[in-house]
Structures are given as structure tokens and as C-alpha cells.
Design a protein around this nucleic acid. Structure first.
Lengths: 350, 350
DNA sequence: TTGAAAGCGCTAACAC
DNA sequence: GTGTTAGCGCTTTCAA
């Protein structure tokens, strides 16, 4: 593997000149530059990243910490980060954490210039150490008073879901979501529940809440509980699409037809939701990663942090229907001139 | 950020001693070690990775190149790699490539100790440059005569799928798969087709082949073609689960019931297949990544490369049935004492 | 416009 | 056991 010194010697110049060419400094004559470039090409030379990092103090690599890389929503966000980071010619160091770990352990100096955390809240200790190390951090799918972050309004999302069900005439509405405290000290489920509960309360309806650990199987069990109630709910809002699929399974197991006997609303709009025909509150997943990466890159350029709020949109598919009738909203809309959602562009029929 | 020199000074020792402690060399007295460790703790010192890499020539980071990080099968493999790599205290640099790119561009020296390629075949040029750079490479989900790799027997997989359909009595069998040349110069679809075609030929049945670019939508269109044939196939084998889902959609659009009117077999057994009740040829996806990482780690320790072949297993769910009857295999098995597959453990009923 | 040389923080000989 | 020191390959003053 050739070094800068060999290139310099071969080109009959000093190493500084080669370095200038490498970093496209204007202070090199055209002819010298050409000569150096020729030698670089000839030798197949590429600068050693470690040496460069040591010298400049910048690694041109950012870390991404994500829990459960298998969750489709996380993967889509990750992809967004990856694209943006690659476009800026940074490298992406991936940490797929299965349980909370001190971030400083991961982000040792000289390795990473910054950190993107997906669906994860850093501990007080993490914050302090990263600040001390001068490593900027941005949060994706998490909210924070002092860190740049990109998030959605979970309360509003819960409200969107509940209002959709209420407008369809449902009065017994269930909620299936995560336990209040996820393993990473963070979950958006409670806020989604809160939004839904508020909307229900305003309509004089009580939200029947069941929550437990994340996962489709768990959600299936919780939904089964709900469906076994004496006064069975006619609609269930799940805190995520994964959980909504569990609800669909529970309905199936209970011999209930969706949407005739039960309406189901999810959250996220992952690919599987599209396939399952699930009505859901869609959030721009890949874009969230993209924006997060953008904020981090900006921070690396010394720009001040900001918080981005991404828009939500209710996507109506075939898992929700008018209470009692089993009529799909699109059919209902024909005879129902209100179409209130239509006007603000929040409703999309598929 | 403290350096090794500050630690040394504060502990009243030389930098070499601190370095020895850091690298747990036995040549340090217990008392000195304790003192040094105390200072390290006190200062919150962590060695600079770039400096270490420059000095040792090892980065303790491996690269993973994967196309279409969104494909669930790729994600599961990636997760396997990630787990193994993390367990060995290596870092994982992720390259989510959307189109073929020279690998040398990514793996500049001083950044990566080795490379895992997922569902990707390196070009001749890539091989040469990586060999020159002394960067070991292992392939996951690809076969190669000269590189360590972990793969499956695609031909055998295709055969498993076709034999299942043949045993169910199907005589008009379709195949939906990828175009012969994927964008990355590599696709397993043709070999799966070949296995299926052979099994069919042995049974005196002709396989009706349709292939095009990857993707569910594309597969849906191809399946629609097949279903519009004068003599419509009663079964379709798709080269991947994603494509099989497209086939299911096409069947639905054509007003056909699965499995009564059409049996469908996929390949991979991604999570969605489980959800969709798809009969499929399962391969251990996460394990493939795990094994790949293991091979790379071994190579980094100077061990010779090897090739691992992972087992396949037919998973029968509810998308396949006896030709003409719509009876599920589990029902059929009761009256059909052969259960030939059963004996070699290749059949699993769910 | 160019070159010489001083670091960047660490490891690993080598000497004591 | 421990300290001194010479690199690792690059960037970046500082002179010329």
C-alpha cells in the first residue's frame, strides 16, 4: 500500500504538495497538480483514513445507534440516515443495540464525529460524557428539550386515529399499546394513547386501554382480552402497525371480520401495513432519518441545533368501516357530504 | 479530552506503562496497574481510536456492503453480522449501496480491516484491489470459487419447492422470478428456477417461466400474465417471498382463491411470509450473517477461508393445497401415509 | 507556488 | 517491571 511519501518522491515534489492536491487546495500550480494526480492514479494511492483522522481530529464517520434493527420502522429510518450520510461522503457506523448501553462505550473519540440516535433517549450520564467529548448528538423519533431532534406529534397522531374511528360512529374503542416504560426508557405509545383518549373524552367516549411489552404476539394477547369483554369494542387503535397486525390476528382468532365486526387502526405505515390493507397514521419514516442526518451534518459544521416536526397523515385503507355497517369510508363519503378531513388534506383514500 | 500522556504524568509512570495497562499486558505490577486504572477512571480517559489504528495498522472495524437495505432478507442477514461483529468488539461500518460501486472506494485503508458482502458479487477489479490492500472479504448469500462465502443450494431449494407442488398433484406450474442479470451482477433466481425446472422435467411437467426485474409489483404483473394463460397454472413458485406476495395479489385481482384455485410457494421465509401464511423454502437468514462475520473474523486472525453451506427447509403454510381439491397438506397427510418429506425432516407444518 | 518539519495519540522495540 | 523513543501517514504552519 503506497503512502503519501512515495507519491511525493515519485512525482518529484514534497509531501505537503501532494497533501494539497489531495485536499484540493488552490495553492498548487496546474502542472504540478496534474503530475501528482498522474502518480496517484498510477500507484492506485488512497490516503490512510486513520492517519488523516489523527491529524485533523475529524473522522468523517458518524454513528447510528438503533434498537431492534429488525423493526421495519427503524430500518426505514436507518435507510434515510444512510442515504444522507453517504451523500455527504461520511461513513456510517452502525450500532444495533439490544439493550441500553452507555453510549460513551460506543463512541470513543477518534472514531466518530457525531451520533444519531433512533428511537432512543440518552441517559443523563450519556449526555454529559458526549458533551464533554464534543460529540454532537441528534435524536430521531424522540423528543428532547436540549438536543436537536426530529419527531412527530404523537398526541396529535393518536387524536387523528381516534377521530377517524369516532367519525365512523364507533363508541366502544379499544387501545393496544406498549407498556409505559420501554426497555430504552422511551416509548411514544403513551402519548399516542393520550391523544386518542382526549379525542374520545371530548366525544364522551371512554378509551379501553390495554398495554404491555412491545411485539405483535403481545398485542395479539391484549387485543384478545379486549375482544373478550362483555361489551366488546367495535374498533381498536394500536400504537404501531406491528401491534395492529397482532390485533388483526386476534380478530381472526375470535372469528371476527375486519372491518365488518371490528375496525382497526395502526400507526407508522410500514410496508406491511400497505400489504395488509391497514388503516394507519402514516409518518415519514425514511425522511425522519434523512432529516436527522441533516441536523447532525449541520451540527458538525458548527451550525446550531434545531428541532424538526414531521407531518402526520391518516391513511384510510380497508381495516376501518362505519360502525355496525361494515361500509368503507369511501362508500360512506359519497352520501356524507361533510368529508371534514378531506379539506385539510389529512385524509387519503387508497 | 485527556491523552495517554496526561494519564501517564498523573499516575507518575511512562506512557508505555499506561499503554501496557490499556492492552492488558502481563508485564505490569499489580500496584502500578491499579494506580494507572485509577487515573484512567478519574480522568474518564479513553484511547483515541484513530491513533491506535495508525499505530497498529488495525482498525477493529469491518465493513458490510449490502444492496437495498430495505429488503427484509438483507436486513435479517445484516442483523446476524451485526451481532457477531459486536460480540467480537469490532465496529460495523455500513454501506447501503443502491447501485454497484467500486468497493475500493468504500474500503480505503486505515478504515476497515475486512469486508462482508451481502447478496453481492465483487467485480474482478474489486477483488484485485482488495487483495492488494490486504483486506479480506467474505461473501454472504453469494457463491465464489476463491473467496470464503456462506450460501445455500439454490438449485436444491428450487427443487424442494417444485417437488412439494408436484406431490400435491400440480401439473401446470408457473415460475415468477428475477431477470437473469440483477443490477449487481448477481441473482439466485435463475438457479432456483433451474432446480424447479429439473424437478418438473423429471415428472414430465413443463415449468412456465416468467421473469423480470425484482420487486413485488413486477412479480404481480408477471403472475397476472401467467394467470391469463389459456391453460392457467394451478400453482406458482416465486423466487422470493416478496415476489410471492405479488403473486398473491395477482391471484386476488384475478378473483382466484389461494390455495383453492392457486397454490403459491415463496422463498426465504421472511417475517411477512409467516404473517401471510405463505408456504416457502426457508433459509436461515440471520445465521447466514452470523456465519459470514465469523468467517471474516477468522480471516482477520489469519485462519484460512472456508465455505459454509446452510440448510434449507420447506415450510408448509396455507398457501399450498392439493391440486383441484383445496385441501391443505396437513389434512391430506392424514389420509396419505407416504409423508415422504417427513422422514428427512425437511417438512414442517405450521 | 513549494518544501521542511512539527505534531496528532498511540504502540512496540529497546535499554535499563 | 518500567521508561525512552522512534515511528505509523497525514495535515499544517512557517519559511523560502
Amino acid at each position: 500500500v503506497p503512502t503519501i511519501a512515495e507519491v511525493a518522491e515519485r512525482a518529484g515534489v514534497g509531501v505537503a504538495t501532494v497533501s494539497r492536491v489531495l485536499n484540493s487546495s488552490p495553492a498548487v500550480s496546474r502542472t504540478t497538480r496534474r503530475r501528482v494526480l498522474a502518480v496517484i492514479e498510477e500507484l492506485g494511492y488512497a490516503p490512510n483514513a486513520a492517519a488523516r483522522a489523527l491529524s485533523t481530529g475529524r473522522t468523517c464517520a458518524v454513528g447510528v445507534v438503533a434498537p431492534f434493527i429488525t423493526r421495519p420502522s427503524v430500518v426505514e429510518r436507518l435507510r434515510g440516515v444512510s442515504r444522507r450520510v453517504a451523500a455527504a461522503d461520511y461513513q456510517l457506523v452502525l450500532f444495533d443495540v439490544e439493550r441500553p448501553r452507555p453510549l460513551a462505550e460506543l463512541a470513543g473519540a477518534g472514531r466518530l464525529d457525531g451520533l444519531v440516535l433512533i428511537s432512543l433517549a440518552p441517559s443523563e450520564d450519556d449526555r454529559a460524557r458526549l458533551r464533554a467529548a464534543g460529540i454532537p448528538v441528534v435524536l430521531v423519533d424522540a423528543d428532547d428539550p436540549e438536543l436537536p431532534c426530529v419527531s412527530i406529534d404523537d398526541v396529535e397522531g393518536g387524536r387523528l386515529a381516534a377521530e377517524h374511528l369516532l367519525e365512523l360512529g364507533h363508541r366502544r374503542i379499544g387501545f393496544v399499546g406498549d407498556a409505559e416504560e420501554g426497555p430504552f426508557g422511551f416509548t411514544s405509545s403513551p402519548r399516542r394513547r393520550e391523544g386518542a383518549a382526549r379525542a374520545c373524552a371530548e366525544a364522551g367516549v371512554e378509551l379501553l386501554v390495554r398495554s404491555g411489552p412491545h411485539g405483535r404476539d403481545r398485542a395479539r394477547a391484549l387485543a384478545a382480552e379486549l375482544l373478550a369483554l362483555p361489551e366488546r369494542p367495535t374498533a381498536i387503535f394500536a400504537a404501531s402497525d406491528a401491534q395492529a397486525l397482532g390485533v388483526l390476528e386476534a380478530a381472526d382468532a375470535a372469528g371476527l371480520q375486519v372491518p365488518q365486526d371490528l375496525s382497526v387502526v395502526g400507526f407508522d405505515d410500514v410496508e406491511m401495513a400497505r400489504y395488509a390493507g391497514l388503516t394507519t397514521v402514516a409518518q415519514p419514516l425514511e425522511e425522519s432519518g434523512l432529516r436527522g442526518a441533516e441536523l447532525l451534518l449541520a451540527a458538525l459544521d458548527g451550525e446550531p441545533g434545531a428541532r424538526r416536526r414531521l407531518p402526520l397523515e391518516l391513511v384510510v385503507r380497508s381495516s376501518t368501516a362505519l360502525a355496525g355497517t361494515g361500509m368503507r369510508q369511501e362508500e360512506a363519503v359519497r352520501s356524507d357530504a361533510r368529508g371534514s378531513h378531506r379539506q385539510d388534506g389529512m385524509l387519503r383514500l387508497t
